[in-house]
Simulated assay, not measured.
Amino acid sequence: MKKIINDPADVVAESLRGLALAHGDVLRVQEDPALVIRADAPVEGKVAVISGGGSGHEPLHGGFVGTGMLHAAVPGAVFTSPTPDAVEAAVAATAGPAGALLIVKNYTGDVLNFETAAELAEAEGTPVRSVVIDDDVAVKDSTYTAGRRGVGGTVLLEKITGAAAERGDSLDDVETLARKVIGQVRSIGVALTAPTVPHAGTPSFDLADDEIEFGIGIHGEPGRERIPLESADALVARLVTAIVEDLPFASGDEVLLFTNSMGATPLVELYLAHGIAEKLLAERGITVTRRLVGPYITSLEMQGISLTLLKLDAELTALWDAPVNTPALRWGI
């Protein structure tokens, strides 16, 4: 294992300290429990949008804390859900009478711990709503998961709900909008190599040089199938087909296309894949009107990509375009 780390047990804490030093203009970090909090939180009269989960997927979630996106992120250990008390602390630090929306990726630990935290916060008098995102079309059944996993669509959900909260929408309205996004976003990913969790020291799984894992999860979970390495044209076509036929997306739809690096895929390959995806969607009559390309929800140093499609309308487009100022996304400010 070659990593730029000290003690594997301190990786998350030391990384969060660096995040705070690099981006102290937009966020602050609390260490016990570990929280990343918007610098001006709590924001009076605004719904607090909070998310979190295991570390190792940076910039998700801490890199999306700031104006127009998350009010707080709750980082667990690498690939490990944060505890209920940490989530409750995030609610207490950011939410006022307007309440809080919790965005939860569909993993058993995350769902249970965020649910417990919501109950604790509500018992203290704070209105809390939770939404669970499950955009991964790779999961055809739930034999090894609790249903579909929350993956790339989480980034888009956090941006759009954060923009709605910023403009002053009520908790009811922000929750309704979140459920709309969840219903219209789909993702799938592929891995060429496995990630190595620092405290484990060895890759999460083995792949031969001529194999890829199609439909991988962001923690190295099994995909739909292990297939021979193929050309970019064939691989992206496989990804696009899986997404488009799931919702389904149709000719005439306008979409946001998010082409994501899983951590180690260089931009030269990422843009190549994005170009192929746009061409394939155009051939289906699907118009890409908004785009995001880069490493925004990663799996440590996994080499691979994921594609995410969100069906847009005027409201969702306006909220996506709204100003945002976070370490990882910044425009309009």
Rank of each mutant, 00 (worst) to 15 (best):
R28C: 13
S204A: 15
T298K: 11
A39T: 14
L27S: 05
I216T: 03
A138I: 00
P33D: 12
V11Q: 06
Y271W: 05
M1P: 13
M1F: 13
A237W: 09
P295M: 08
R148H: 04
G294K: 09
L102P: 01
E221W: 12
E225Q: 14
A178W: 01
L157A: 06
G152S: 14
R226S: 07
E213V: 14
R224N: 01
H57S: 11
D32T: 15
I50C: 13
E58W: 08
D321C: 03
T326F: 06
E213D: 14
D321M: 04
I227C: 05
V288N: 02
Y144A: 14
G189Y: 05
I218V: 15
K311P: 08
S142F: 14
D321Y: 04
N113E: 06
E31R: 14
G201I: 00
D173W: 07
A48W: 02
A208D: 15
R330G: 01
I276Q: 08
V65K: 07
A242N: 00
F114H: 03
V74Y: 03
E88H: 10
I182M: 04
E283Y: 13
V185K: 14
S130W: 00
R149S: 03
G189R: 01
S170D: 12
T67L: 11
L329M: 08
I103R: 02
V174S: 09
L156M: 15
L272H: 12
L171W: 06
L281A: 12
N260C: 09
S55W: 08
R186W: 06
F79A: 00
G147T: 03
A237D: 15
D7Q: 04
A200E: 12
T202P: 05
P75R: 06
R238S: 02
V190L: 12
R186S: 04
E283K: 15
V87R: 00
K105T: 05
G56W: 06
V131K: 02
L27E: 05
G275S: 09
G56R: 08
L309C: 11
T259K: 03
R17F: 03
V91Y: 02
P42T: 06
P198R: 05
Q303T: 15
T176D: 11
P327N: 05
A208E: 14
S51R: 10
P82K: 04
G54K: 05
G304A: 12
A93H: 02
E88Y: 02
H71D: 12
E221I: 08
E315N: 08
F205C: 04
A250T: 13
V78E: 03
E166V: 14
A164T: 11
V11I: 15
E115Y: 07
G109Q: 12
K180T: 15
L156D: 13
I212G: 01
D173Y: 07
R17D: 11
L102S: 06
A318D: 13
L16S: 02
A9C: 10
A48R: 04
F64R: 01
G52H: 10
L70P: 10
Y144M: 14
V255C: 00
K46P: 02
I4P: 10
A48S: 10
G150I: 03
L270M: 02
P195G: 01
R238W: 04
V104G: 09
P203D: 03
I212W: 01
R224T: 07
V190G: 05
Y144G: 14
L316A: 07
N6L: 07
A232F: 12
K279V: 09
